[in-house]
Design a protein around this nucleic acid. Sequence first.
DNA 1: TAGTATAACTAACATTTGTTACCAGTTAGT
DNA 2: ACTAACTGGTAACAAATGTTAGTTATACTA
Lengths: 197, 197
Amino acid sequence: MAKIRQRKNSTRKETIIETAARLFRERGFSATSMRDLAEQVGVEAASLYNHISSKAEILQELCFKVANKFMSHIDKVDTEDITAIKKIEAVLRFHIQQMVHHYEEVYVSDREWKHLTDPYLSNIQTQRRVYRQRIASIIEDGIRKNEIKKIDAPTAVLIMLHAVSGIESWHRSKEKISGEILEENMITILIGGLQNK
Amino acid sequence: MAKIRQRKNSTRKETIIETAARLFRERGFSATSMRDLAEQVGVEAASLYNHISSKAEILQELCFKVANKFMSHIDKVDTEDITAIKKIEAVLRFHIQQMVHHYEEVYVSDREWKHLTDPYLSNIQTQRRVYRQRIASIIEDGIRKNEIKKIDAPTAVLIMLHAVSGIESWHRSKEKISGEILEENMITILIGGLQNK
DNA sequence: TAGTATAACTAACATTTGTTACCAGTTAGT
DNA sequence: ACTAACTGGTAACAAATGTTAGTTATACTA
């Protein structure tokens, strides 16, 4: 029972969270009501509460899932023995791939985290700050080693991360180039812009 | 009376819209209530309706004001007799300056236009599409003339515009570099990334 | 001084919101 | 077969939402 409860519960819960991610992306967290969500899931609003404990919890799960994913990745990249510019490229490629393949959850957690409430809000703010600082440190390292142009590292981080979130437009556009070509184009422009020639 | 009504009315209306821009930026359009707005203006919620006709109207005014501003600017740039890369640089610098000096309204109109309703929604969607296409055309022209790397133009536009919206992080950061240095850094990276060497 | 437009207020409205309490049918393990 | 968990539904809630109606005080114009 415990086992089965776990499995069934989480499957249904996952459906709800995935559906919520799509709606939060389309309409925003605040503009999405539990009744909207229920309708898309095919259930009454009250029934959602058999699987989740609040609307806020859905956003929390989305945000922390994504935050953890990016944090683990930069952990891995940072231990590799490659040049700073290669590290930045690896981080950038990961961001692009995540935005291409896990669009909804990544986009939502990036745009809607402000609607978290306090223990979670502070937590995610800290995580985001730490994450950006780690990228900035890699860039500063690259500048010292003359691999990267002499620029303001936080500004470079800001450009990188926000450029990636623009992949939203790509998703919505009619005639999409492939994800791979998108990735190469973005790398060309952004790494090209950072790199010292 | 007409004169004074006009002047007083628009002053008060402007205050409301400016305050709304700040709140919409901080909390989002949907998460900002008319009572929140009224409180910040220092008035009861119902009193707002002496100056504006609806919450939606506030967003409309913000979005179209900003859209018109950018559209006029690209009109001007496009008639100038300069290289394609210089045109792109001019557009980019204008975006950066607008984001630095008219942060709230530019940011809000960029993030919250989805909450417009239909005659206005379609209108702004078209304007945004046309605007991006015009930048893409300049880029394609630059590619033909070998001033710009052989990249996918819509992708370059996407990167440019979204990178600029990242100036939001700069506004929120404690130790800001100056607006001018920010601008030069962004130009270095982005124009450096586009330009053919 | 009388008259009029402005801009504020209070009270109230109809909806929509997130959520809870409670009940019923189905499923799965003993 | 019996029990317990799971998952759904109905009804309802208190609070919050955008907005309207009606009133009043102020201030400028004639």
